[in-house]
Design a protein around this nucleic acid. Structure first.
Lengths: 205, 205
DNA sequence: TCTCAATCGTTCTAAATTTCACGATTAGAC
DNA sequence: GTCTAATCGTGAAATTTAGAACGATTGAGA
């Protein structure tokens, strides 16, 4: 099997999202040019990405939406449902618990953890809120794969340590601070401030 | 002046965030190796990035935190305060309005827009909620530079069109759908589902 | 049947980015 | 004052990524 680059996988996830949408609209065929118009990714890039997963297109016709979607999902998702644990049930954490798209996709929030005792024991959108101390036990029981840090930056490292200890293999970190984790754990940082400033600095001046 | 790449600018924002933190801790000196340990970016990369902005380090010593911070900010932020308009005051939008880091940084949420009439006219965390129809007028009056899409995917294109019409030059799009905008407007997509699946696909299998 | 236009898939080229290697500089120890 | 170890800054090599060019394939229409 080919070695498929991280960027290709990331774009494949965009193609899958787009195809899901097209299929819902009863669209049966789509060309790389169509996908380029929708996604903003060049048609050449799209064809090259797709060719990593086999020859599923037909010249003059394009791709069958359902077939392409199935092929892409077969490679990148493999029917997996990703189990995710959430740390921090403040405004952002609550927004994640209420995020409607997770239900349609291959993502399941299996547990939430919080320091504030008044929130512990409650259920939000079907997800139970536990004390942070119980995280290792609960995470093993629920087979969580990934974790989300939605606590203040002042506690993000502390929470990251617990996540690593609990055996999580990937972390989405919303706290505006770098965290240190072993190489075996991968981290994706999303700092709202930096995202906005990056847009501003890179394009407006 | 040198042509500084987008990736360098993005990393510079991480250095600035880190330096802000170190300065708050009364740390006066930092080496590229120290910064590498904290941020996870290689020390060579850090030195090369910084060298874009001049020779501010001293061999054997490292960088003065305050001086380096000032230099970096001078290049990438230039004392600007970025004015941001928010579209959608649901769970995620409310989380953005309550996001504490914006106040410390160079970001000011100047207005929020919402369809739901029961929310219009209220003030959340000092930010007034307006009807979406009034966006062009309010955005011009408040001199907003960037916008945030925090509405459901079903309405994201509609909202994006209004943002473009209102003169916003950059958009952070949290809706899980691609939006089409003129080339002059830059877009940063943040799809929580894709972020999680990307972590999972790229590292766990 | 033949031609044509659209589209895929692939190879080669170019650009961007990171990593490596190493010289230059400096503070401190002796 | 000299040596040493740490650190910066930079030019070159290597890697990754995107882009361009182009042949191959296919369905439709004359």
């Amino acid at each position: 099997m080919k070695n498929i680059s991280r960027k290709t996988v990331d774009r494949a996830l965009i193609y899958i999202r787009t195809l899901d949408h097209l299929i819902k609209e009863k669209r049966y065929l789509v060309s790389s040019k169509d996908l380029a118009l929708i996604t903003g990714i060049s048609d050449v890039q799209i064809r090259k990405d797709i060719s990593n997963f086999g020859k599923v297109g037909r010249p003059r016709i394009g791709y069958k939406t359902a077939e392409l979607n199935k092929t892409l999902k077969g490679f990148v998702l493999q029917e997996n449902v990703v189990h995710v644990a959430l740390f921090g049930v403040g405004h952002l954490g609550t927004a994640m618990l209420s995020y409607p798209a997770f239900n349609e996709d291959n993502i399941k929030l299996v547990a939430a953890f919080e320091k504030d005792k008044s929130k512990i024991g409650k259920k939000i959108n079907g997800v139970k809120v536990y004390s942070v101390e119980t995280a290792p036990k609960i995470i093993k029981r629920t087979h969580a794969d990934l974790g989300i840090i939605a606590v203040p930056a002042s506690h993000s490292q502390e929470v990251a340590d617990i996540m690593v200890l609990s055996g999580l293999k990937g972390i989405v970190n919303f706290a505006p601070a770098s965290i240190s984790v072993p190489k075996s754990v991968s981290v994706k940082d999303i700092d709202f401030t930096i995202e906005l400033l990056s847009l501003f600095c890179n394009n407006l001046q």
